[in-house]
Design a binder for these strands. Structure first.
Lengths: 112, 112
DNA sequence: TTGCATAATCGTATATTTACGATATATATT
DNA sequence: AATATATATCGTAAATATACGATTATGCAA
């Protein structure tokens, strides 16, 4: 951010925007879906399933991990990743709240 | 995208990722909330409510409009913006589906 | 018609993101 | 100990995002 501080926005908005950002790439959506289907899997499996290089997948995994959406643990020479279900549940709730807010308060009609 | 084509991902994932991207800035979340509360408002009101320059707010509005989340119409020398309720409803549903999928399929336990 | 107000767009600087190949690191295996 | 395998990180190029001020365009009012 060049001029305005991101801190001038409500903390809650900053937080949910950060998670939306983590979800804002189709490759990361795809990673989450694969992890969900397989319960857990290693990086190499994801690389096989995605049209991206190994280093790129690793980078996306890092983004998802930093956003708290996935967990990873070292398993020998591999890394095993899985969904952080609590984070997904929390995001589901926060999204619901946000969309409900937007939807409800913008009743009763389109005025433009 | 430098090398891999974004088209190699499922269309649905590309679409929802694009909406998440539009939601990935706290300023745009704030804009949506203001629009919801006021039913509709002109650009200038948003500028007053946000810690951003007029041109920046206009840019964010363009992003939200391109994502289909808001509608704008010219009203004399002003532009009046409002929430696209259908788009919000659709996104609410799609988000629910996605999070349910991730949540449900990653049952029954954390395996890593 | 001239001037005023509003908002969009332009130009631009900076930061971030995305992608890749290459390399480093860490753990098994021989 | 040496080798193989898996993944993270580094380096980097290109694209995109974010912010601002300045300018342009539009429509209303005097």
């Amino acid at each position: 951010m060049a001029f305005a501080s991101i801190n001038e926005f409500p903390k809650k908005d900053i937080e949910i925007a950060a998670v939306f950002k983590a979800l804002s790439h189709p490759g990361r959506i795809a990673i989450l879906k694969v992890l969900a289907k397989k319960q857990s899997c290693i990086c190499g499996e994801l690389v096989e399933d995605l049209p991206l290089a190994q280093s790129t997948v690793s980078q996306h995994l890092k983004v998802l991990k930093e956003a708290g959406l996935v967990q990873g643990e070292i398993d020998g020479p591999r890394s095993c990743y899985c969904i952080n279900k609590d984070a997904i549940k929390k995001m589901k709730r926060q999204c619901g709240d946000l969309f409900d807010f937007i939807d409800k308060y913008s009743e009763p009609v389109q005025t433009c």
